[in-house]
Design a binder for these strands. Structure first.
Length: 877
RNA sequence: GCGAGAGUGGCGGAACUGGCAGACGCGCGAGACUUAGGAUCUCGUGGGAAACCGUGGGGGUUCAAGUCCCCCCUCUCGCACCA
């Protein structure tokens, strides 16, 4: 310890700059296809270039980087790319607010954030960088659009958008705050526009079934995806109108409960359904119904946010006939029936559907019991809620020839009957809806379509791609999208007939960009095809995808859909894009909240733990300690840049990996950061002190050395640490415990060196060298800069990133002695230290002789003795 | 309401198949080295004087339960009328 003051301090700035420059110069992480080598494609979700990186990025990319670096050391040919999801709304808003052009704003941000990511020492292959707002990327969005159009996977239909009548523009969902425009506060209305859609529903079943094979995805993500697709098997049945109309003789409903059809005492239509107008035509109820429909569709949007919307409806005056009971049943319009799902019409069975029950009770519609519970206690006239159970014992009643059948059997038989009578058939419905991709905005991929008065919708010929996004357009935030106001963009000649025509001025949803970027990374510079088949054949699928849970449904589902569609175009063989998925938790921090000033920065708070905390401005007591996701509005963000310049990238990485397992939320702690920094300093000092003693050439300590207990212990620790760190990474990326093992290792090494003889024995030196070398290698994925520097100090040839991962020797991790806990009646009473190869008898004899145990046993023979080999002894008395 | 997950010291978190609860880190305490320390090192640190008590609460299974079973409470996330 005396040499301490002479040591070079751990200078993260110098070290990190040096090795970042080295990696760049040497192209250490550039990936090439090497068919003979096993590949590993590690991917983190690419960022939106908002300006600067935040802690969520640091965490996401630190996790991904450890995986990439670890796999590289394990001998995999690793692809680890990075890019920019650079189309999107914030760029347009910046243009309006600051007068910066979205392109300029975006590319400036990219430049800055790229330098920040480099400062983190992430092992990316920067030669594969992909930027979605550049024509060499988005032209392929257009190309895919054309291919989808050819295959009927891209189509046009009417659809509602959020519309601000005051700004005269379309709003994204996130621009609608409590039903009002975020900029001008006027009430947002729904407006019907013709829009482009991708037919994701064509892949509904495959997307659903694919979930079963994604065994390395978190269960909750799969559950969310399954629910989102929402498959239900049922039957469509035509209910004839009691008084047929010329253009409508029956209403088709969808039900998953055909077994309850005898209990259908009325019918409900969705307010938006065109059937409503048909059935009310010329009736006295027409005005009331129209008024109801208008009211419901007005409030729809707002009311949907409200928790328990009151069920309400109105009678149309029309009747249908229940095809089984032949009863005339009234047709109602009900606010809870969804037009987009099923057929927009339902048969209502109040006795066995709670919504129908509430509705029937409210409007005094008859309730007919058709399923009796196994206890036979249900009485039609005394129901207080619907009996919805479908268990095997409940049987049908009041259902003619089907009465007495158990529910499941009845479902089958009645469905058969429906099909035999030709009044309906089995169908499968999905909750999933087609993906609307039109955006009435500027900063996105232009949709490559042309409208010609003579030819109709004409796709832009492939040879004319890309349709470039014009740069000089005005940004006012008002009126139609800037593209629609750029005449030179709008006016074109029809590719089919040559007459004047109009371009589509909508751009694509930015989710399109992120739905295939992982395929583009395989061959980012291919200029004749979006994806080079050979490259994607080698690299795909992504072996490990890492990103936030907030993308559990949309992004991941769209990416799966695109991959399947691209597969069907013959461009990739991958069915699923992401073999394995890790959803990391959020980065949170404690907040301060003042009753008058809302969220406060820590600097706006005065006080101590003992005296309580007060607002520095108004002096009122502050609510402290609620841990929330870091966000500007809650004033609890920590800028990673400050962290990196103060403590270095290695500390930032280490902390974000150590403070919590990757999938859990991480609570920020300043002192925790210092702990990680301290650890790196400890490693540094240890190495610097030992350096003079480590001149022994590399190599395994000789056999002689293993007889010295101290050396034996050290080697055991070394090899155990190898095992622990490896197992923790392999077992669900438990980096927090892997780092803990490294800390214990360092603690052990300090202990060892402190007790070391003044004159080091050669066997000690060799074991020490092995230990230190192992430490650096194990540390390399977590704190790569420090590891490189130490590796060089040790005389290793760079880069440590390409060294093989150490393998432990299983014989060395075994100890020749064991500590066996001894319990009496299941309570720990003593421990004994015994040779590892002792038999049960020997261990038990020793245990009985133990002073404390003898006292507990008081010479009596235990009633029962439990012996778990090499683990534990329990005497039951 | 439905679905999923989680509740462990002062704090973040360990504990793989039931087998020593609290690894590791933070914080705190004591000491060492120091002109000094908010640097560093060493030791200690769940509660309790002790018997004992301790993994959200209550029951159960077991020689043995943070871990398995039943009931309840709280929190987080997701979906919100899907016929």
């Amino acid at each position: 310890m005396t040499k301490q003051n002479e040591l070079q301090p751990y200078d993260h700035r110098r070290i990190e700059e040096r090795w970042q420059a080295y990696w760049e110069r040497e192209q250490t992480f550039a990936a090439q296809e090497i068919p003979a080598k096993p590949k590993y494609y590690c991917l983190e979700m690419f960022p939106y270039p908002s300006g600067r990186i935040h802690m969520g990025h640091v965490r996401n990319y630190a996790i991904g980087d450890v995986i990439a670096r670890y796999k590289r050391m394990r001998g995999f040919n690793v692809l680890h790319p990075m890019g920019w999801d650079s189309f999107g709304l914030p760029a347009e808003n910046a243009a309006i607010a600051k007068g910066v052009h979205p392109y300029r704003w975006t590319t400036d941000n990219i430049a800055y954030m790229r330098s920040q990511l480099r400062q983190m020492g992430l092992s990316y292959d920067w030669t594969r960088e992909v930027t979605t707002c550049e024509p060499d990327y988005y032209r392929w969005n257009q190309w895919f659009f054309l291919k989808m159009y050819e295959r009927g996977l891209a189509f046009r239909k009417q659809s509602a958008v959020n519309w601000c009548p005051s700004c005269d523009t379309v709003l994204a969902n996130e621009q609608v705050e409590e039903g009002r425009c975020w900029r001008c506060d006027s009430v947002v209305v729904q407006k019907e526009l013709e829009q482009w859609f991708f037919r994701i529903t064509a892949y509904a079943d495959e997307l659903l079934q694919g979930c079963d094979r994604l065994t390395n995805w978190p269960a909750r993500v799969l559950t969310m995806q399954r629910n989102w697709v929402g498959k239900s098997e049922g039957v469509e049945v035509d209910f004839p109108l009691a008084d047929p109309l010329p253009d409508l003789t029956a209403v088709r409903i969808f039900t998953t409960r055909p077994d309850t059809i005898f209990g259908a005492t009325f019918m409900s239509l969705a307010p938006e359904s065109p059937l409503v107008e048909c059935v009310i035509a010329g009736r006295t109820q027409a005005a009331a119904v129209r008024e109801f429909v208008a009211r419901v569709s007005q409030q729809d949007r707002l009311m949907r946010l409200a928790a328990d919307r009151e069920k309400e409806g109105v009678f149309t005056g029309a009747y249908a006939v229940n095809p089984f009971t032949k009863a005339r049943i009234p047709i109602w319009v009900a606010n809870f029936v969804l037009y987009e799902y099923g057929t927009g019409a339902i048969m209502a069975v109040p006795a066995h559907d709670q919504r129908d029950f509430e509705f029937a009770t409210k409007y005094h519609i008859p309730i007919k019991l058709v399923i009796q519970n196994p206890e036979k206690t249900l009485q039609e006239t005394h129901l207080d809620r619907a009996y919805e159970e479908q268990d095997g014992e409940a049987c049908l009643v009041n259902s003619d020839r089907f009465s007495g059948l158990p529910v499941l059997q009845a479902t089958r038989r009645i469905t058969d009957a429906i099909e035999e009578q030709g009044i309906g058939r089995r169908t499968i419905k999905y909750r999933l809806r087609d993906w609307g991709v039109s955006r009435q905005r500027y900063w996105g991929t232009p949709i490559p379509m042309i409208y010609c008065d003579a030819c109709g919708i004409v796709p832009v010929p492939e040879s004319d791609l890309p349709v470039l996004l014009p740069i000089d357009v005005p940004f006012t935030g008002k009126g139609a999208s800037p593209l629609a106001q750029a005449p030179s963009f709008v006016h074109v000649r029809c590719p089919a007939c040559g007459k004047p025509a109009r371009r589509e001025t909508d751009t694509m949803d930015t989710f399109v960009d992120s739905s295939w970027y992982f395929l583009r990374y395989c061959s980012p510079h291919a200029d004749r095809v979006p994806i080079d088949q050979q490259a994607s054949g080698y690299w795909m699928p992504v072996d490990q995808y890492v990103g936030g849970i907030e993308h559990a449904v949309l992004h991941l589902l769209y990416a799966r859909f695109f991959t399947k569609a691209i597969r069907d175009l013959g461009l990739t063989k991958a069915d699923e894009p992401f073999q394995s998925l890790l959803t990391q938790g959020m980065v949170c921090k404690e907040t301060y909240r003042c009753p008058t000033h809302e969220w406060l920065f820590p600097s706006e708070v005065v006080g101590t733990d003992q005296d309580g905390f007060h607002c520095a401005t108004c002096g009122r007591p502050v609510e402290k300690g609620r841990v929330e996701k870091m966000s500007k509005s809650k004033k609890n963000v920590v800028d990673p840049e400050h962290l990196i310049t103060t403590y270095g990238a290695d500390t930032a990485r280490l902390f974000s990996l150590f403070a919590a397992p990757p999938e859990k939320d991480l609570e920020w702690s300043d002192s925790g950061v210092e702990g990680s920094y301290r650890f790196l300093n400890r490693v540094w000092r240890l190495m610097a002190e030992l350096q003079p003693d480590l001149s022994t050439p590399a190599g395994v300590p000789n056999d002689q050395s293993t007889t010295v207990p101290r050396v034996q212990d050290l080697r055991r620790l070394t090899h155990r640490t190898m095992k622990r760190v490896t197992d923790d990474i392999e077992r669900e990326f438990q980096f927090n415990t892997a780092i803990a093992a490294l800390m214990e290792f360092v603690n052990g090494l300090y202990k060892f060196t402190a007790e070391r003889d003044a004159v080091a024995q050669s066997s000690e030196a060799a074991a020490l060298r092995e230990a230190v070398q192992t430490l650096i290698l194990l540390l390399a994925p977590f704190a790569p800069h420090a590891a490189e520097e130490l590796w060089a100090m040790l005389g290793g040839t760079p880069s440590v990133a390409t060294q093989p991962w150490p393998h432990y020797d299983p014989t060395l991790i075994l100890s020749d002695r064991l500590t066996i806990p001894i319990q009496v009646n299941g309570k720990l009473r003593s421990k004994i230290d015994v040779p590892a190869d002792w038999t049960e008898e020997q261990v038990l004899a020793q245990a009985r002789q133990d002073e404390k145990i003898a006292e507990w046993l008081q010479g009596k023979a235990p009633r029962k003795v439990i012996y778990v080999e090499k683990k534990l002894v329990n005497f039951v008395v």
